[in-house]
Design a protein around this nucleic acid. Structure first.
Lengths: 197, 197
DNA sequence: GTCTATAGAGGGATAGAC
DNA sequence: GTCTATCCCTCTATAGAC
């Protein structure tokens, strides 16, 4: 617990930790108060309610996970291969530091799709620099399929981590190595697919 | 509500629906009772507790989602390409009928990895017919990377569905079409990668 | 087996002292 | 701003009638 933080920020940081770990429904405000090292009453003093505090956290996390995409896709100074590389690198780094992020966001988003409303614009995908570059290179490939595939290759292992551990496909030691390998593997595979023919 | 079902099965079916939709923590036993059209007390009469009922449901779902993998991977009469095709087909079909399945299982599994213990054996992957075939064709490719990639390409869109809807990448009408296209697209891409060089 | 009624614990929120 | 004490509603689980 950092001494120079405000109490409000300490509570919010605790909320990030507990909400991400247990999800909204399973989280008790008392857990957050304990994690923050403060009393339960103080949480309501600063944030009024569990739900309001949650909203602050989830909006931040939605922004964190999806905010990186738009700038890359629309960056005209990057080639298509550069864009793929940037997306894979950015997400791998982010998720290695924050492995619970995608399951948390996807799971809460399923229950409350309106949390998303007006916050993320990816329909821009179809008019983006990315879509143009893909069309020039491979007009037969639907940019939605391409995009969701790159994201799936990159993000899915983090979602499937418990399954990989439980099934013996990976261990705590090998998981990070595998994810690091994918930083080069995925762009390599995509390159082959783009250059075929 | 089917007339010829037993009460026990009606409750269990209601539990499948509600647990899958809301997750364990957000589910109230009253919701299940209402969905089943019975009284709350009956739920406890048949299943003793919310947790015991949940275990029956989640074990079933874990089996449903992972049980299909092992028989395919070890089936010596299928070529590598056949295996990929079978996995993509099977999961696409399963998830189109049951779109909440993967987020439910992965999410609950994250909170309770021990739910998995002794129930799924995928470490067999490394000695399987699948691994041998892959090694013969592409010795440099780690079967774990290959496996997790095929699964990611197939399953990730269902996990990301709320995001795809909210961002305008897909709609209720286009989503099923897109998923159907992937049934041929993913095996096609994998074939290219396997045949390169 | 199925119901009504309720016990009993848990958890979000607030009153009020300091 | 921060605490203790507590209110009160919600939810799981059970008692007991039918």
């Amino acid at each position: 617990m950092k001494k120079d933080e405000t109490t409000e920020e300490r509570i919010k940081e605790a909320a990030r930790v507990v909400f991400m770990k247990k999800g909204y429904a399973a989280t008790r405000t008392r857990d957050i108060a304990d994690e923050a090292g403060i009393n339960l009453a103080l949480l309501n003093y600063y944030f009024r309610s569990k739900e309001k505090l949650f909203h602050q956290v989830i909006f931040e996390k939605v922004q964190q996970i999806f905010g990186v995409l738009f700038p890359v896709l629309t960056n005209e100074s990057l080639t298509l291969e550069d864009k793929v590389q940037a997306i894979v690198e950015t997400y791998t780094k982010m998720l290695l530091e924050n492995p619970d992020l995608p399951i948390f966001v996807f799971s809460e988003l399923k229950n409350n799709p309106q949390l998303f409303d007006g916050r993320i614009k990816l329909d821009a995908i179809v008019n983006s620099s990315f879509a143009k570059q893909l069309y020039d290179k491979k007009p037969e490939v639907n940019p939605v399929h391409f995009m969701i595939s790159v994201l799936g290759l990159t993000v899915f292992p983090f979602l499937a981590k418990p399954m990989m551990f439980a099934s013996g496909m990976a261990t705590n030691e090998t998981f990070e190595v595998l994810m690091d390998e994918r930083r080069t593997l995925i762009p390599h595979w995509v390159k082959i697919l783009l250059e075929k023919e």
